[in-house]
Amino acid sequence: MRQILSAVSQYKEYLVLTACILLSLLLIATDSNPQIRSLRSVTIVTIGFLQDMFDVIPDYFNLRDENRILRSQNLTLSEEVSLRRNAAIENGRLREMLGLKEQTRYDNIAANIVGRNFQFFRNTITLDVGENDGVRVDMPVVSHEGLVGRVVATSSGYSVARTLFHREMKTSAKVERSRVDGILGWNGATHLMLTNVAKTLDVQVGDRLVTSEYSSVFPPGLPIGIVSRTQEETGDLFQTIEVIPLADLYRTEEVFVLLYTPDPARIALEEESAR
C-alpha cells in the first residue's frame, strides 16, 4: 500500500495530466450532446448581457473610414432608390399583364451586434435580439450589403449567429448571371470558396452570387458575394472559385434577422428521401 502511495506521489503530475486529457477527450466527444447545448444557451444570456455593456466602447479607429463609406453608400442608394421605384412600377405593370402573384417579402428584425467571437475557424456574432423578439434557430442574418450568416442559438433576449466565415457554414449558392449552382463554404482564408462547379460551367470574375432555391435554410435570391478569382487545376473536374462576401463580416455593427424558417414539410421529405 505504501509502495502504491509512494508511486502515486512520485508520478502525481503525470496522473493529473492523464486525468485532464481523458476528461477533455470525453467532453469533446459529447460536444453535440443536447444537455451541453442547453447549458451553452444559458451562457449566451450571461455573456450577451456583459458584451452588451461593453458595446458602449466606440471603435474610434474605424469611424473615419465608416463615415466615408456611409456617405458613398448614401449617394449610391439614393440613385438606386430612384431606379428601383421606376422598376417596381414597371414590374407591377408587367406582373399584372402576366397575371403573376406578388412575391412575398420576409419580415425582419433589426439587431445590433453586441459581441464577436474570433475562435479560429468558428466566427460567431452575438445579437441583442432573442426568442422574445421572435428570433428562432436557423433564421438568416443579413446586413444591408448581403448575407451575414444564420442563427444557431437563442436565449430570451440574445441570439448567436454563425457568420459565413465559419468552418461549418455551408450553403447552396447560385451565380446570378449564368444560374450555375455550387456549394459555398470557408476554409480559413480571407475569401469564401464556391465548390462543386464543373470546369465546363460558365463562371466569371465579377459575377454576383446569391442564395439558391436548393438551400434548405436560406430563402432564394439573397445576395452573398462577388466572384474574385476562378482557376482550373489540371486533372481536376471542378474549378476553384474564390468569392468575396458583400457584407463586411468583421466590421458590420447592425444586421437584420429575417423571420424566415424553411418549410418543415420540405425538410421532412428531403430527410426521408435521403435515408
Binding site: C20, S24, L25, T30, I44
Partner: peptide, 20 residues
C-alpha cells in the same frame, strides 16, 4: 473558456490544449 465561448468553441478542446 469553452463553456463561455458558447457556439464558437468545442467543449473540452481549450481545456485539453491549455492543460497540456
Amino acid at each position: 473558456l469553452d463553456l463561455l465561448a458558447g457556439e464558437s468553441s468545442v467543449l473540452g478542446l481549450s481545456a485539453l490544449a491549455k492543460s497540456v
